[in-house]
Amino acid sequence: MISTIIVTSSIIFALVYALAYRFWPGMHERVEQPKYSFQQQLAQHEKHCRDGKSTDREHGNEK
């Protein structure tokens, strides 16, 4: 009984999430947005490293 609830609820959750992702206006972009933001954060960090600007708290850059 409980295992049926677990399996069913998992499938329903996945279906609802997938349908919302596909059909809810703007949902697709919102859900995927963090991976691009992360990429930008990485790029900024590595740019600073490449430019020799310290992002290291050890070097007195702590806010």
Binding site: Y36, Q40, H45, T55
Partner: peptide, 16 residues
């Protein structure tokens, strides 16, 4: 898409 997050600060890594 990338620029839509204005709240990104320059990260500070505690390398020690």
């Amino acid at each position: 898409l990338i620029q839509s997050d204005p709240d990104i600060n320059q990260p500070i890594v505690d390398s020690l």
